[in-house]
Simulated scan of single mutants.
Amino acid sequence: MGRTTLDTAALAHELRLAVMRFSRRLRNQRVDTSVTLTHLAALSTLKRHGPMSPGELAGHERVQPPSMTRVVVALEAAGLVTRTPHPTDGRQVIIGLTSAAEEMLAAEAQAREAWLAGRLQELTAEERAVLREAAGIMDKLASG
């Protein structure tokens, strides 16, 4: 193995671990811990992509439809999602967010961003500039 390959493999390892630790810390900046991370992910998908059937939601979340059915039932019981009849398929329903879910998602995002902004203030201007550049590079890696 050449030096470049070893350097790339080492960077991949370090970056994977750093991103996992960072993601875990960011996820832990929660406002409402009564909602599980699985439920929060489903709500975030509905926020990002709009109302959809439970099957479509399961596809986005990469879980089996019966698992998503349990998530939807719990979210509906918590007053976070609504079910409306599907416009063309009487056997289906469409899941959408309630205003309570919208407010909770906004509060969750604000809490995470406030925590991150505080941590960024602890860095030097040069370190923040490096992270600004790294954010674009990480977006490029994620979209490829």
Rank of each mutant, 00 (worst) to 15 (best):
R3M: 15
L46G: 00
A142C: 03
I137N: 10
A101P: 07
W115V: 05
E61P: 00
Q121D: 11
T8G: 10
G96D: 03
R27S: 12
A12R: 14
M104K: 02
G55S: 05
A101T: 06
E127P: 03
L11T: 11
L105I: 03
A101I: 04
P87N: 05
E126K: 13
V73Y: 12
A74Q: 10
P54E: 05
P54R: 03
G96I: 00
R132G: 07
G96A: 04
E122R: 13
R83A: 01
G79L: 02
L40Y: 08
Q64N: 06
P66V: 01
A100Q: 02
D32I: 01
L141K: 08
R16L: 14
T88K: 06
A9W: 02
T84W: 06
P54K: 00
A129W: 09
T69V: 06
T124I: 07
R83C: 02
L141I: 15
Q92G: 01
A114W: 15
I94D: 06
H39S: 02
K140F: 15
A9E: 04
I94E: 12
T33H: 08
S23G: 07
G90N: 14
M68Q: 01
R112D: 10
W115S: 15
L131F: 12
M104H: 03
I94Y: 13
E76P: 02
V71D: 00
M1D: 13
A117C: 06
M104Q: 05
P54G: 10
L123V: 04
A107L: 14
H39Y: 04
E56K: 02
K47W: 04
L43A: 05
H60G: 04
S34M: 03
I94C: 06
K47H: 08
R119T: 07
L46T: 00
R3T: 15
E126A: 15
L123K: 07
L57G: 04
P54C: 07
D32C: 01
R16I: 11
P51Y: 05
R112Q: 15
R25Q: 14
H60A: 08
A9D: 06
Q110M: 13
E133W: 12
E113S: 12
K47N: 08
K47R: 15
Q110G: 10
E102G: 09
T98H: 00
